[in-house]
C-alpha cells in the first residue's frame, strides 16, 4: 500500500529512514548533543544529506525524569518544526509526542507525522492527526503510563498483545478520520517490554507486516540490544543492525534510527536479498 505522510507519498517497496532528532538535554543516546536549537538543526541538515526521508523530532525523553509540561514541550519543538519545515520542504517531519495539544501545534507548524510512542495515552491525538491530514504511528506499550519503565509486565503472548493493541489503535485512528494510507504500526521495542519480549517481537515481526499496515521499528541502540550483547549505549550499533536485518527481511517499512548511513546500508542490503531492490550497480560475471 502506498504510504502517505501528509504531503509526501512513498511507494510500497521503499524502506524509509526516520532519523531521531532530540530537542532534549537528557536522551539516552545523545545525552543532550542536540539540545541547543542550532545543534538540532545541524543534525537535521546532516541526516538529510545522509538520505533520511523523515526526521523524528522529540522534546521529551522516553525514560522517567524531570516532568516536562505541555508549554515546555511546545517551546522545545513547535518553532523548531516550523524552521525545519521552511528550510526542508521535501522532508517528512515527524514529532515524537503523545499529547494532542502538542500534536495540534506541531501540525500547525508543518509536521506530517505524529509518532505516538506511548500507545494512545491521549485519546484525542488521533483527532488531531485526522484534522490536519497527518499520519499517525500506533505503538504498543502494554498500556503503561507515559515515561514509565516496564516492571514485571508479562504477557501470555506478547506478539498477540502487540497485534491486538496496534490494530485496535489503527482502527481508532481510522474511525477518527485518519486516512488508511497514513496509519503506521510500531511494536515499540522496550516500551512495556523486557528484553525477552523485545527479542520475541523482533523474531515474529513478520506477523505485524502480515496485517497489511506499514510497520515502523525503533530498535536503535535500545536496552534490549545492550542486555542481549552486554554492551553499553555507545557500543550497540552492530546489535542494532542485526535486529534491523531481521525486521528488514520481514518487510518493516520505516526505521527510526540514530545512525542513518549504517542503517540504510543494512536495509538496502537486506531489501536486495529479499528481491525488493536491485543492486546499485552489478557487472561482475555478466559483462
Amino acid at each position: 500500500m502506498t504510504l502517505r505522510l501528509r504531503r509526501h507519498s512513498f511507494a510500497d517497496d521503499q524502506p524509509l529512514m526516520m532519523a531521531i532528532v532530540n530537542r532534549t538535554p537528557d536522551s539516552f543516546f545523545d545525552k543532550g548533543a542536540t539540545w541547543a536549537e542550532q545543534a538540532a538543526f545541524d543534525r537535521v541538515r546532516l541526516v538529510v544529506e545522509q538520505g533520511a526521508e523523515i526526521v523524528d523530532i522529540g522534546g521529551i525523553k522516553a525514560a522517567p525524569g524531570e516532568e516536562i509540561g505541555v508549554a515546555e514541550e511546545k517551546a522545545r519543538v513547535v518553532d523548531f518544526v516550523a524552521r525545519v519545515r521552511s528550510e526542508f520542504p521535501g522532508l517528512v517531519i515527524s514529532v515524537d509526542t503523545w499529547r494532542a495539544e502538542v500534536g495540534d501545534a506541531v501540525c500547525e507548524a508543518g509536521a506530517d507525522v505524529l509518532n505516538d510512542a506511548w500507545g494512545g495515552a491521549d485519546p484525542e491525538l488521533v483527532d488531531v492527526a485526522a484534522a490536519h491530514g497527518a499520519a499517525i504511528v500506533c505503538t504498543h506499550t502494554g498500556g503503561v503510563t507515559p515515561r514509565t519503565r516496564p516492571f514485571r509486565i508479562e504477557y501470555d503472548d506478547v506478539m498477540a498483545a502487540v497485534l491486538a493493541d496496534t490494530q485496535a489503535y489503527a482502527s481508532r485512528a481510522l474511525e477518527a478520520g485518519v486516512a488508511r494510507e497514513s496509519i503506521v504500526i510500531d511494536p515499540a521495542h522496550d516500551f512495556g517490554k523486557n528484553t525477552f519480549h523485545s527479542l520475541e517481537v523482533t523474531r515474529r515481526i513478520s506477523e505485524m507486516v502480515d496485517t497489511g499496515w506499514p510497520v515502523l521499528v525503533s530498535l536503535s541502540n535500545k536496552d534490549f540490544v545492550g542486555e542481549t550483547l552486554d554492551v553499553p549505549v555507545g557500543e550497540r550499533l552492530l546489535g542494532t543492525l542485526a535486529a534491523t536485518s531481521v525486521c528488514a527481511l520481514a518487510g518493516a517499512r520505516i526505521y527510526r534510527v540514530h545512525q542513518v548511513l549504517e542503517t540504510r546500508q543494512t536495509v538496502d542490503m537486506v531489501w536486495s536479498i529479499a528481491g525488493r531492490r536491485r543492486p546499485a550497480q552489478a557487472i561482475r560475471g555478466i559483462q
Binding site: R277, R278, P279, A280, Q281, A282, I283, G285, I286, Q287
Partner: peptide, 17 residues
C-alpha cells in the same frame, strides 16, 4: 552478448548505459 543487457540483471544504475 553482454548479459548485463538482460532485464533480469538490471541494476539501479546501469553499468553499461
Amino acid at each position: 552478448g553482454c548479459l548485463a543487457l538482460l532485464p533480469a540483471y538490471a541494476s539501479l544504475r546501469d553499468p553499461v548505459a
